[in-house]
């Protein structure tokens, strides 16, 4: 069933519809806030806040954008608020390696698997050193695979700004990774 239909049903009192919506988005949103918050405890609080705000404002969703875009826009606002409160615009907290176990991975050849594990270590470390907007644009574009237009909607920016931001973020991330491995 489409998200928009589930929204209608949830507003009409169907709790199962809300549960389905929650089930669809809890993982990608958790991933998004975990990377941006940099720690599990805050990510848990943020994800609760997001779902509360989403549900409370559900009647305001008009279907002009996709539900996914809408809920990610809410999440972005929650994360911005969080950073404002934490005075933590440039998060430097590194995630513990134990969190790597939470990842689901595609299994490739042995060589690629080693490569992937190494790469994911660097993804975590470098993402957490990036400014929050860089994290957000990279996450929305490459993890969630939103289009430039959708990313612009979520981030309340023009498509032009998103493209420029994405280029800068990608360059910065590559430079950080290469510094980490002694190439920079």
């Amino acid at each position: 069933m489409e998200d928009e239909k589930l929204v209608e049903l949830a507003l009409d009192g169907d709790d199962e519809a809300l549960r389905t919506l929650h089930g669809r988005y809890v993982q990608p949103l958790f991933h998004y806030v975990y990377v941006q918050a940099g720690n599990h405890h805050d990510a848990e609080e943020l994800i609760q806040d997001i779902f509360f705000k989403m549900a409370k404002n559900l009647a305001r969703f008009q279907g002009k954008s996709s539900f996914k875009t809408w809920i990610f826009a809410i999440s972005r606002n929650v994360v911005i608020d969080y950073h404002r409160k934490q005075k933590k615009h440039k998060a430097t907290t590194f995630m513990p390696h134990s969190t790597l176990e939470a990842f689901t991975e595609k299994v490739h050849s042995a060589e690629e698997e080693v490569l992937d594990k190494g790469l994911k270590n660097y993804l975590l470390q470098t993402m957490n050193q990036l400014p929050t907007d860089y994290q957000a644009v990279l996450h929305l574009r490459f993890v969630e695979e939103f289009s430039v237009k959708e990313t612009a909607e979520i981030m309340k920016k023009t498509t032009f700004s998103v493209k420029a931001l994405q280029n800068r973020a990608r360059k910065k991330m590559m430079s950080l990774i290469r510094e980490e491995v002694g190439e920079g």
């Binding site: 993982q27 994800i47 991975e105 992937d116 993804l123 993890v143 695979e145």
Partner: peptide, 9 residues
């Protein structure tokens, strides 16, 4: 790698 990157709550 980012496309394949998923974290589970």
């Amino acid at each position: 790698a980012m496309k394949e990157w998923k974290m589970e709550p």
